[in-house]
Structures are given as C-alpha cells and as structure tokens.
Design a protein around this nucleic acid. Structure first.
Lengths: 190, 190
DNA sequence: GTCTATACGGTGATAGAC
DNA sequence: GTCTATCACCGTATAGAC
C-alpha cells in the first residue's frame, strides 16, 4: 500500500467529516497531509471528485466494521445499540463537535450535484445498514423487518449527530440512544 | 416589507436547502433573484454571513409554523406525525431530491466554523422542537417527556431526509413515518 | 515519481457614478 | 437606492523541469 496516496485519502476523510465537500480545499488537504500538489494529480488524475469518492468508500467500509465490532460486544440488540450510540455521543463531544457522521455533509451536498459521489454515499450508507441488519437477523428478526429497523436506526443516529453537533452537546445523541434501546426492547420478535 | 430585500432572502433560503452554505455563491443568489450586486451589500452590509443568518431564521420560523399547522389537522399525535412525515416524503420526491431539511447542510457545515450561523441554526431547530413538543403536551405528555420525544422525532426526520435525498427514494422517510407512528401509539401517557 | 510555477475561473467584497 | 466596473484572493487544474 502506497503511503503517500494512502495519507492523502486519510486526510481527506478527516476534512470531509468536519467541513464537507465544497468547503474542503485541495490545498488544505495537501498542507495537512504534507504532500506536494504534483503528487495529488499523479495519484488521482481525475482530481477532487475521484479522491473524494475513494475517501467516502473507505469511510463506509471503516464505519461498517466499527458497527459490527461494537455490536458484537453485547448480546442483546437493544442494549448493544444503546451502548453503541452512547459511544458516538462521547466521540462527538471529545472531537469538539467537529466529528461524527462522516458521510453526512457530503451525502447531502452531492445528492443531486454529482452522480459519482452520490453513488459512493449511497453504497456507503448501505454498508452501515447491513451491519445493523446483521445484528438484528442474528436476534430473531426477519430479513425484511431487520432492514426496516436498520434504516430507522441509521436515520435516528444521523439526525442525532446533526442535533448534537449543532447544539454543542452530546445530549440529543444520548436521547436517541435511550429511545432506540427502549424501542428495540419493546418490539415483538418474528 | 421591502420586496427586493425580501426576494434576496427568499432565494437564499431555496439555494441553502439544496446546496448548503459554501456551495451557494452570492452571484448565484443575485442571478436567480434578479438583483444587482450593489443592492445586496446595501441591504446586508455584513455580507454573506448576515444574509445567511436571516435566511436561516426565516426558515426556522416558517418550518415551525408548517409543523404546527400540519399537526393540528389530526387529533391523535402518533397519526398526526405519521401523516406529517409522509407529506415530507412526498415533498422530497416532488423536488427531485433537491429539497427537504432546509437547515441541515448549513447546520452541519457551520457547527464549528461560524458562531453566528451556528447560533441561528440552533435556535431554528429549537423552534421546530417546540412545535412538536406543543402537540405532545396537548396530548397528556409532561413537558420534559414531550421535549425528549420532540428531539427524537426531529432527529429521525432529519436522518430520514438524508437517506431519502441520498437514495433518491421517499421510502426511508416513509419508514420513519411508520416507525414514529407506532412508537407514539405504544407509549404510555403521563 | 516528485516538485514548482503558473493558468484561469469564480469567490466575496468594494468604489464610485448616477 | 440602484447599478457597473473592478478589486484581491483562493479555488481547481495543468505544464514542464528534474
């Protein structure tokens, strides 16, 4: 794995999470990663869109893995998700409300303005939802019902991140954690 | 009410909803609203940030009013919110996935990069949550419990809008509508 | 492969005529 | 109050030396 190329993508992931696609400049990426501009177009000949697409793909894979890992630590799905969302609340606070929801801004900005980035975001979100679905299927939910719940879980968390980053408080996310925990516990299994 | 100034704000509201703060240019606002650049700085001497702040405030007031109006049409709060979220799904689809969640992109982009815009977004979200809370208080929930639910409702809807705009389908939002409807119906009143 | 210098367009903002 | 002309700057992207 080429470390220069890798470092560019890694830095891009971080900046996209905080600032989004349009507010993140290539100069900013190069300065933060310590790379000269010539290298960027050597590794990403199609420019910013190609680089961002790779960064989104990496973020999707990484977050999906983190979800699987976190949810595997607790058996009961309601308690596992409650605990997972609480850990996001802590993460958002610890970052000074600059992190959390690494796909969100790019997904919204490019939903109708870049087909390539829209596709990347769509596939990334699908990976996250499959990770939630997997946990639910393993706990007596049908595939269809599990996906329906996974989408709702994903939506609530993303919304909770918006409200927490905006209000500069982890409380909205902790509220989501409690609500999802109760909801999953009160649901009849299939 | 000055119509030139008003038209600038109105156009800004529309563009912010689709493109966000950083991708919306002043030239774009002026072209779409048919206003010369000189007028913009006459009405908004502090420039883009002042204009955006006013646009966010207007959007917050407008959406809060729409929530109150929609929720007043149906007595049962679960059914009222289910119906309201379904109407958002239709709205997002009808716009070609360019509209829905008019605060979201700006809120995320400016959470830690502009104190003024962060404050405007925070207050706007608070107005929406008060609108939901009001409906719940009128239906036998305590103030505190009603606000807790209002925040969760707000988060789920915002997240549902992200997923619908990203996947180019109203289905995630309709899923949120059903889930929130069932959740509110299954909750014990205080 | 890596780097510097630069092109070119668009950005937010300003000055000053009318 | 409204408009035009123009500013300085930064964005992405490219050319070409080494």
């Amino acid at each position: 794995m080429n470390t220069t190329r890798d470092q560019i993508i890694e830095t891009t992931c971080e900046l996209l999470e905080t600032y989004g696609y349009y507010a993140t400049g290539l100069n900013q990426i190069l300065a933060k990663s310590g790379t000269p501009k010539g290298s960027l177009y050597y590794y990403f000949p199609e420019g910013k869109e190609e680089l961002t697409s790779e960064a989104i793909e990496r973020t999707g894979r990484r977050v999906a893995e983190r979800i699987k890992h976190e949810l595997s630590k607790i058996g009961d799905p309601g308690e596992a998700i409650r605990s997972f969302v609480s850990s996001i609340a802590y993460h958002v606070e610890a970052s000074g409300f600059r992190a959390g929801g690494p796909l969100m801004i790019v997904a919204m900005e490019t939903a109708t303005s870049s087909e390539r980035l829209n596709l990347a975001c769509r596939e990334a979100y699908h990976l996250l939802q499959q990770a939630f679905q997997e946990k639910l299927i393993a706990n007596a939910f049908t595939e269809a019902r599990a996906m329906q719940l996974a989408i709702f879980i994903n939506a609530s968390i993303e919304g909770g991140i918006i409200l927490s980053r905006t209000s500069h408080s982890g409380d909205p996310l902790r509220n989501v954690a409690e609500m999802l925990g109760h909801l999953l516990n009160s649901l009849p299994r299939d």
